[in-house]
Design a protein around this nucleic acid. Sequence first.
DNA 1: AGGCATACATACTATGTAGTATGTCGGCAC
DNA 2: GTGCCGACATACTACATAGTATGTATGCCT
Lengths: 215, 215
Amino acid sequence: MRSPHAVSETVKAVKHRDPEKTRSEILRAAYGEVYRRGFRATSVDDILARTGVTKGAFFHHFPSKNDVGYALADEVLREMTLDRWIRPLAAYRNPVKGMERRFRALMQETPDEDLAFGCPLNNLTQEMSPIDPVFRDKLRAILWMWIGATEGQLRRAQADGFVKPGVDVRAAAEFVVMAEEGSAALVKNLTDRRVYRSLYGGFRMFLESISTKPL
Amino acid sequence: MRSPHAVSETVKAVKHRDPEKTRSEILRAAYGEVYRRGFRATSVDDILARTGVTKGAFFHHFPSKNDVGYALADEVLREMTLDRWIRPLAAYRNPVKGMERRFRALMQETPDEDLAFGCPLNNLTQEMSPIDPVFRDKLRAILWMWIGATEGQLRRAQADGFVKPGVDVRAAAEFVVMAEEGSAALVKNLTDRRVYRSLYGGFRMFLESISTKPL
DNA sequence: AGGCATACATACTATGTAGTATGTCGGCAC
DNA sequence: GTGCCGACATACTACATAGTATGTATGCCT
């Protein structure tokens, strides 16, 4: 590719020897492939081909292919879940309103070519949790965190009078997360954007039914 | 295993030469393995080991491994979906009541050891639809059938005054199927039976919100 | 009786894939 | 400068796995 000698000639050579960048490049490429093809269907060579990283470098940074999956869960999917579903809620006076807006936003923002690939977290969980206890524990922890954070927001909403006093916020949080994941899954399977609108309507109806006033 | 010569000696030999049985044995074993491990993680040899069928017989009945998956969709999953979710509804005067009962029944009937494996149809769809158009078309057809039949039942309920006149039964059917599949998926991922009760509560609330009277 | 298609059985191959053995290179410690 | 460790690079191996080549047995049809 490039001569290994002509290093500090013109540029200060940010290329060679940048372990953090190499590692994150691997993760980035792995994420894309795993998202589209699934974890087991993604070969190490696929990832290498998308990065230019060599096999030696790969196994220098990750002891095994599975460890890339673990890092994906710990570092990428966890953050992605927080950014998509949790952190935006803090900005709303009424978090339930935030949930409704977030659902609609995700539905609108997802590009057509990604519709058929569903939710990255759900995909990896469905594939790997039943057959690998390390994946299972890591991914389950993310789900519990998601549910727990949703519950916290609903509790705040309840304290501020937006959610009916009698509502079991824990159960409601589990239903909300189920609907958020389940909707992405069904749309993935049908690859039909219109379905999202129906599901949005149902989701909204559920949120209204636990709220004290219309959204 | 057994001598090929001692055939019609004592028993009339129902064993040898029963192509339909051989084929259904393959499908039966394949279903179990695919359900637990996933389609791509199930090797042909795995299926053979669980049946005693030889590789020659296997590829005599199915031109390729993928064709077993196609047959699984066409013959097994389609029927299973109908038996689980659709056919029982016909017995109810109020189909919405039937949906609520069916959800609860599935939740109670699923044995602990199957909880972690989720819905067979959803598993196969999640895994194979994005990467194989034949799977995609077959599985999508089952989903549309499921939704369509649910819509039909809701329409009947609406005609009989159980569902509010203003409700979009098509959209409601899509939400119902999403909740049925999404609940199994979330419970699979969390492997926690108690979650099912929360989701049942939310499902019930949704059904109530489209009904004219309490269930 | 004998031909022939169906229904198997066995042994082999081609290929993809995770992982390893081994070497090299660059920069910092001293 | 030299030693040394981290960060790569290359070539190879061991193994699983879908699929095939080829052979054989069975039973029905004529």
